[in-house]
Design a binder for these strands. Structure first.
Length: 420
DNA sequence: GCGGATCAC
DNA sequence: TATGGTGATCCGC
């Protein structure tokens, strides 16, 4: 490689991935926007020069380097591999996985349409038909009119305004959302008493029993349930019906047979698979995988690098096989509880310690309300460069008071360290 | 057990 | 001018 030619290549490649990264994790998810390339350019332009931009650039560079290391690792791992033999072994595993496919359960994934925005519309009908975003600082959701401009949840308000100058911004009203969420969840529960909420606006249901008991098809059940939600809350809900929890895209029932499911998966972007985020999308793309169909094509590489890519998971994804067990999270299964806050500026050490005490007090309140406790206390702190650090300490006894959380924890020591 | 990363919502 | 909060999991020490 000529000195001078490589950096050029790197920097142009870096720009493309960086511009995409800056657009945020939920960009390009729904194809509502007119011109995603132009939108991404505007976002990148608005971000340029900020510390946030610099941090994203740093992370993008680190990821690119990681990918280059993995590519090298791949070349080394593939040397001397008996491709036919590995293919045969993987194909054998596919046969085994296919034999375990269970089409007996009717799983429904329900998702409220633009939930927070829809609730705001109920309280303020003036907003109907207008582009608006919910949330100050960072948006929690955007109306469909705003989405046409590329406005997305997780996007800072000032960038959303650049994309859509007429955008109206309204504040979050979390108590309203909680109230409406409870109403909606109660409707869902009538169709599956064991349904599993996934956040405030989503849930998984197993309606097998309900449809048998009422002599209804899955589609009829879901139709009825969606009508009930709308009648009781004026909110609309989309649903995907499948033999497992990997929802089809949008409102849709997939036929309950192996061939149809595999055909559906074939062109599905790997990014749609739960658990494959922006990073894994790039890692998989680097070995030629963009769709779930590509998994089969590249099965030998995945198999040889099983530890990095997870062969079994990807083969199941290729086949469209996923968990079909729906159960609510039990209280005892809770692993952690926390509180965090972002400050625009925090002042001196005394101010920082005071804020830490306030957060510890808030956490104590949350913990005592439900009788939660734990042995490991973790401090997470973010610098104004957006770099995030954690420091944790495990005690030989359970802690729960704010004094313990604050004083007995490593928090104070870390802040001390940062200031000295 | 610790710290960094990734992911979903 | 300016980019969130909560909880879970995995990997490599």
């Amino acid at each position: 490689m000529e000195p001078g030619s490589e950096p050029q290549l790197d920097s142009s490649q870096e720009t493309e991935t960086l511009v995409k990264r800056l657009a945020g994790p939920s960009s390009g998810k729904a194809g509502l926007a007119l011109d995603q390339t132009e939108i991404n350019r505007i976002i990148a332009e608005a971000s340029k020069g900020s510390k946030f931009y610099d941090n994203e650039k740093r992370k993008d560079k680190e990821l690119t380097e990681r990918i280059n290391r993995i590519k090298k690792e791949k070349d080394e791992s593939m040397r001397g591999v008996d491709i036919r033999k590995v293919e045969a072994a993987v194909d054998q595993l596919l046969v085994q996985l296919e034999a375990q496919r269970d089409l007996s359960q009717i799983i429904v994934h329900v998702d409220m349409d633009a939930f927070f925005a829809s609730v705001e519309l109920l309280y303020n009908p003036e907003l109907a038909g207008k582009p608006f975003g919910v949330g100050r600082g960072v948006l929690t959701t955007a109306s469909y009119e705003a989405r046409k401009y590329g406005v997305r949840s997780g996007m800072p308000g000032f960038i959303a305004k650049k994309l859509c100058p007429d955008l109206i911004l309204v504040s979050n009203n979390f108590s309203r959302y909680a109230e409406m969420s409870a109403k909606v969840m109660n409707v869902f529960r009538r169709y599956d008493s064991n349904m599993c909420p996934a956040g405030s606006d989503e849930a998984y249901l197993n309606i097998t029993e309900y449809s048998v008991m009422h002599g209804l098809t899955a589609e009829a059940c879901v139709q009825e349930m969606r009508k009930a939600v709308h009648a009781e809350t004026q909110l609309s809900v989309s649903a995907g019906i499948a033999p497992n929890k990997n929802k089809p895209n949008g409102q849709f029932q997939i036929p309950f047979d192996s061939a149809s499911i595999k055909a559906f998966m074939h062109h599905l972007s790997i990014r749609k698979v739960p658990g494959i985020g922006r990073v894994n999308e790039r890692l998989l793309e680097s070995i030629g995988i963009k769709t779930c169909g590509d998994i089969y094509t590249h099965r030998v590489v995945i198999s040889v690098m099983d530890k990095r890519f997870g062969l079994k998971f990807l083969l199941q994804t290729h086949l469209g096989i996923a968990s079909n067990i729906v159960e609510p999270h039990l209280r005892e299964e809770r692993k952690s509880i926390g509180a965090e806050r972002t400050f625009s500026s925090l002042g001196d050490k005394e101010k920082v310690l005071q804020k830490l005490q306030e957060i510890a007090a808030e956490l104590e309140k949350d913990m005592s309300r439900n009788g939660w406790t734990g042995r490991t206390v973790t401090l997470k702190y973010k610098l104004d460069t957006y770099q995030v650090f954690t420091r944790a300490k495990t005690f030989d006894r359970y802690v729960f008071t704010k004094e313990e959380l604050y004083l007995v924890s490593p928090l104070a020591a870390c802040v001390q360290y940062y200031y000295e």
